[in-house]
């Protein structure tokens, strides 16, 4: 299971990376915005994308849309982990095809639950 973590703050990337390691996911890569993340994803090999929303360059919502528009990536599970907490934004992300949405600040438990739920659904499909 290879996971890409996208956040413009390196501290948050490290937090997520360490939490994932605790959950048994050791194969992770990092990108600091959508613009760097997209070519990495298109390069192939990723099974899961965790992305922030508010990033300079290319935002997480635009990255999500780009992923869904790319026939090779369209099925990639995407979890959004973001401080964006307006209802409009959550609806927007859902419509763009997000698989899970976590608002910051979050707990290790929440991250585990959402990841479990996403894979439960992916495996059932």
């Amino acid at each position: 299971m290879k996971i890409l973590i996208v956040d413009d703050f390196s501290t948050m990337r490290r937090i997520i990376k360490n939490l994932l390691r605790d959950l048994g996911f050791t194969n992770t890569s990092e990108a600091d915005d959508g613009k760097t993340a997209l070519p990495m994803l298109q390069g192939g090999g990723f099974d899961f994308l965790i992305t922030d929303w508010n990033m300079p360059g290319m935002t997480g919502i635009d990255l999500l849309r780009a992923v869904r528009a790319d026939s090779n990536l369209a099925g990639l599970p995407v979890l959004m982990v973001t401080a964006e907490s307006k209802r409009d934004q959550i609806v927007e992300a859902a419509q763009a095809g997000v698989n899970g949405y976590i608002v910051k600040p979050f707990t290790a438990q929440t991250l585990k639950e959402k990841i479990d739920k996403i894979f439960e659904r992916v495996n059932a499909a």
Partner: peptide
């Protein structure tokens, strides 16, 4: 130690 790890999320949130 996990608590110390999670406490660092302030940097992202205050940075924004």
């Amino acid at each position: 130690i996990s608590d110390v790890l999670m406490a660092q999320d302030f940097q992202d949130l205050t940075g924004q």
